[in-house]
């Protein structure tokens, strides 16, 4: 059909090639398979158990996918996203089907060690206030720690990179303290800090401070000397050079440091919450373990995945925005 004979909307829809249509429809088949097996096969779990969340979850996913697919007819960006993720989406739906079949539909995977997808979802949505409370606590602790560690790391790394004097006195400290796992400080921090919350913030801060300082000071010392000399011959002061030459030049190092800092911080956070603070996602996992509530453990891990992924995605989005001049920065 030629665009001239077709009316507006259909003319644009017709630009999607048949192969692309197949790719857009394939995840629907996998999702349909998941829905169909879940609805058709009986549960082997005790008779007082009934699925509450999984079918609804699948229907919401189905609706979302249909909405995206519809949008993709008009918005090229959406279409490209879907066409990029189609294989991964199929894999996710097939894995979900597999897990569902092996647990609630056949009992091959034993309870309580491997719960069904429905139970994992139930552990989140059935305890939503508790989950949100702990998530909020963890996020606030994490953000406080990362902020504190970020500021400390910027100052420490700048001093170490910029001045020989500071480098002499500060670098042995970071070389000795930095690599020690933050949880090793736990017992001490609990005693020395005014509260267990403050202790945890400090431990998270420590794990951001270390990689950020090391990356930043190394970056500052490695700044292309001609950038600085050129600025000097153009009449720039030390302070101007620091702001307009050195910091922009080390932005990639700062972001690498922050990226590593966020990853280390999550480890520190879980350790701190498990050992010290009696709240947060880390505590929630150890609590669930004590009561052998594996569905809680799985669901909390799921939340951790989402938190870590979101934080790092935000970080890379900021980097992309701040470092607009780069062609190919580190991709996430």
């Amino acid at each position: 059909m030629s665009p001239s004979t077709a009316s507006g909307i259909f003319a644009r829809v017709s630009f999607i090639r048949p192969k692309e249509v197949a790719k857009l429809l394939a995840p629907l088949l996998a999702l349909g398979l998941c829905l169909a097996t879940d609805a058709a096969l009986p549960s082997v779990y005790p008779s007082d158990y009934s699925e509450q969340y999984f079918p609804a979850f699948l229907r919401i996913v189905l609706l979302l996918y249909l909405a995206c697919a519809a949008l993709s007819c008009w918005f090229k960006a959406v279409r490209q996203r879907l066409l990029h993720f189609w294989g991964l989406l199929i894999a996710v739906f097939v894995l979900l089907t597999f897990l569902n079949l092996q647990t609630v539909k056949s009992g091959n995977f034993l309870l309580p060690y491997v719960p069904s997808p429905d139970q994992i979802l139930g552990a989140i949505f059935g305890n939503l206030p508790t989950v949100l409370d702990n998530l909020g606590g963890s996020l606030s602790l994490l953000l406080q720690g990362i902020t504190l560690g970020g500021v400390a790391g910027m100052v420490y790394g700048s001093c170490m990179g910029y001045s020989r004097f500071f480098n002499y006195w500060l670098s042995p400290f970071i070389k000795l303290i930095g690599p020690v796992p933050s949880t090793a400080w736990m017992a001490l921090a609990m005693v020395l800090a005014p509260s267990s919350h403050a202790a945890s913030v400090c431990l998270v801060a420590l794990s951001t401070w270390f990689p950020l300082s090391v990356n930043l000071s190394g970056g500052i010392r490695g700044v292309n000397k001609t950038y600085i000399e050129r600025a000097q011959t153009l009449g720039a002061s030390h302070f101007f050079i620091l702001r307009k030459v050195i910091y922009p030049a080390v932005l990639p190092n700062i972001f690498t440091g922050l990226f590593m800092g966020v990853c280390f911080s999550l480890t520190a956070l879980v350790g701190a919450e498990m050992l010290g603070v009696q709240s947060g996602l880390g505590w929630y996992i150890s609590y669930a373990e004590a009561w052998s509530e594996f569905d809680l453990i799985y669901s909390t891990i799921l939340i951790f995945i989402l938190v870590a992924f979101t934080l790092i995605t935000i970080l890379f989005k900021i980097q992309k925005q701040v470092m607009k001049w780069t062609k190919g920065a580190i991709q996430w």
């Binding site: 720039a236 307009k244 030049a249």
Partner: peptide
Amino acid sequence: GFVFQQTNLYPWLTVANNVAFGLKA
């Protein structure tokens, strides 16, 4: 003024801001 062997523009500044660098400094 010194123009170096490698052109050494500041990659994080636009053309206009590179030209204006000394005036700003």
